[in-house]
Design a protein around this nucleic acid. Structure first.
Lengths: 246, 246
DNA sequence: TGGGTTTCTCAGGGAAATCACAGATATCTG
DNA sequence: CAGATATCTGTGATTTCCCTGAGAAACCCA
């Protein structure tokens, strides 16, 4: 089930209307903190654990709708943790966190059960989007909630990664896509460059802050080109997207 | 009976609309876990057992529509288990799991009755496809659900393994066929290389992830050759198939 | 056993995406 | 209106990702 909050943000809820529950498991405190904050911002209830032991215990009493699980924990092998979690919560979807450089350290079979994974360093938009996808497909939230964002005559499909403006298919790069998704998930709301950077770029991004300006510029060329503009600058504050016709 | 879920995936259901039930019997926990995860994702209800004893017991009260049965169980000979299962569920179809090098004469005899088998290590696509076939033919699900996938002018027959694009018969190798089937069972949806690997290749495949790129390349030569392309790359995300005319 | 087929590794080439930099342009303030 | 500040965007370097040819190994069937 989805509802639209007064701010215009779309929230994912359980069928009974209560907030979605997510368990975050990682041994780095900075990561659990970062994730907890971001996921709470989604309106979800969060608990975190720093090792496999705690993860299983917390899962037992917290009964989360989804789990974010680092594959590198101090006390247990990732697969062992997964097995014990599965015994507690047979159907809960899991989002795995893996190191980028440990690319080929076999996460074999894991995505086949409907689970998913992201590599560190991740962007929060990516984590949130994948979690939303997992929860949506797991049936913990209402199945009718679909994967298409709509603002005016602009639509973005999270499954097919397709974007249309006034029916015309628009090709976006991965970064452009994530930026637009973030904007569209917060329509009519000013988002600062810092917010955008924190959400759309990886948490370890060390570059110039004006990449945001650059990518907004790219988006405008593709989304607004020759049309009534939907992306607006609020000088000194940030950017916002809204329907052109209103 | 089949219905199409909000995500566009086609689900197999019993005539009364309830989910299909499958019993998985194997003594290796990793195998039952892998299969349970994957089959649950198909929307089916799964129970598992680790030996012949438990299999018969679970079958009695779970009344599955199909059984996946490892022929090498610790406590009983495979044939014995089969016999007892048959006493409980005379008409249930069975998918046998056998070692690659096992004597296949016996199996050949067993499958004469409409059952089927796959050899370890299997790919999940293969297991799922064969199970779907068994259930469909057994009449546990609606008979009208047929075995032909269609995307645009591309058709794939799961029974005859024939593929046509715009009426032209196209010969595919086994791996190419499974890859295309997986794509076509998820049309207009981006599938990551990890997802494809987990689903189409055997669970013990330890090779390079770029076999996926390679086989996509093969498929394109045969499916898209000189025509409007149906297989698309989403750089940094994965691949998807969709009708060329849209 | 041997030839054809299929699967897979490896590596080079090339295309696309990302980003820094800096000059151009727009907006604000006094 | 002028200067200061903020934002926009063209250019090009770098990196990342993808495609594909060549050939080795495994497999199948006669």
């Amino acid at each position: 089930m989805t509802t639209t909050s007064p701010q215009g943000r779309t929230e994912l809820l359980r069928p009974d209307g209560s907030p979605v529950r997510v368990l975050v498991v990682d041994d780095e405190l900075s990561i659990t903190e970062l994730l907890s904050m971001a996921l709470r911002y989604e309106g979800w209830q969060i608990r975190s654990a720093g090792d496999g032991q705690g993860a299983v215990q917390t899962a037992r009493e917290f009964r989360p709708d989804a789990v974010v699980l680092d594959m590198m924990l101090p006390d247990m092998d990732g697969l062992t943790v997964l097995g014990r979690l599965r015994r507690e919560l047979p159907d809960v979807p899991v989002l795995f966190l893996t190191a980028k450089d440990a690319v080929e350290d076999r996460i074999a079979g894991l995505t086949a059960g409907g689970d998913d994974y992201v590599t560190k360093p991740f962007s929060l938009e990516e984590v949130v989007a994948r979690l939303r996808g997992l929860i949506r497909r797991s049936g913990a939230a209402d199945r009718r909630s679909d994967s298409v964002l709509v603002v005016g005559d602009l639509t973005l499909d999270e499954d097919s990664h397709e974007v249309f403006r006034a029916g015309e298919n628009i090709h976006l790069t991965a970064t452009e896509f994530e930026l637009l998704r973030f904007l569209m998930r917060n329509p009519r709301r000013v988002l600062s460059k810092a917010q955008i950077l924190d959400r759309v770029w990886s948490y370890d991004f060390g570059g110039q802050a004006n990449v945001v300006e650059l990518y907004i510029s790219y988006l405008r060329r593709k989304i607004d080109a020759g049309r009534e503009p939907m992306i607006h600058t609020r000088r000194g504050a940030g950017y916002l997207i809204k329907s052109a016709v209103s």
